[in-house]
């Protein structure tokens, strides 16, 4: 079954999305004459994710070296290696994800037996590949953690890792449900948290939160995504 990407996702439901623009401008989420604070001209740039140069420190060097040794396609498959806040992230070419996961699990010196968590992040307005999927792997043998991250455009697909980590089944379904990332080869890629006939993918940044204004003691409080907020 081929699933064609539908767009714009969720734009036909409720209020228009209050999307933080990038680079983020202003401070209160409003533009024009409404802002009398003088902070309307503030610009907050989006930060690039840059690769970390070797040595990475800790066990990170051992992990990357072991993977490089065990996986001949390392140079092609790994886009960049990022070490931040004592966590190792391997950015991977989406098509190679399942291969890398297989080696991460099976290689003697890697042994990431448990796929702890799968989640998605929508980096709206970053570049075309705005949807990121992260896999948090844990090695019980060595007591280590590593994060695999892939980035795909809207309508893009990622090979499933369910054949390597069956536990990713529901978690990939959740990521599909919430972000619309298609996991090719997944045994049962259906919605898991939202109703089956739901339109759009709610965790995307251009999907509105929704809500209705509430009246309290005569004053009307707008729904949370339309309130004036500090950004």
């Amino acid at each position: 079954m081929s699933i064609e990407p539908t767009s714009p996702e969720g734009a036909n439901l409720g209020a228009p999305a209050q999307v933080p623009s990038s680079p983020q401008k202003g401070m209160f989420g409003i533009t024009g004459t409404g802002d009398v604070s003088g902070f309307g001209g503030l610009v907050r740039p989006r930060h690039e994710v840059v690769g970390t140069p070797k040595p990475y420190g800790g066990y990170f060097d051992e992990v990357t070296d072991a993977l490089e040794e065990a996986y001949p396609g390392f140079a092609d498959a790994i886009e960049k290696v990022v070490v931040d806040r004592d966590e190792l992230t391997l950015h991977i070419v989406p098509e190679r994800l399942a291969e890398v996961a297989q080696i991460m699990r099976d290689d003697e010196s890697l042994r990431f037996e448990l796929c702890s968590s799968v989640s998605g992040v929508d980096y709206l307005n970053s570049d075309a590949r705005r949807l990121h999927v992260t896999y948090h792997l844990a090695s019980m043998t060595y007591r280590r953690r590593v994060r695999l991250e892939v980035a795909v455009p809207v309508g893009g697909s990622v090979p499933t890792v369910t054949s390597v980590y069956p536990t990713a089944d529901w978690q990939e379904r959740e990521t599909y449900d919430m972000f619309g990332v298609i996991f090719t080869g997944h045994p049962n890629l259906t919605r898991v948290l939202m109703p089956d006939d739901w339109e759009g993918h709610p965790q995307r940044k251009d999907y509105p939160l929704g809500g209705v204004p509430v009246e309290y003691k005569g004053a009307e409080i707008p729904p949370p995504d339309q309130r004036r907020v500090y950004q």
Partner: peptide, 8 residues
């Protein structure tokens, strides 16, 4: 500060 973490 921008970035991502995983805590278990």
């Amino acid at each position: 500060p921008p970035g991502q973490v995983y805590v278990a």
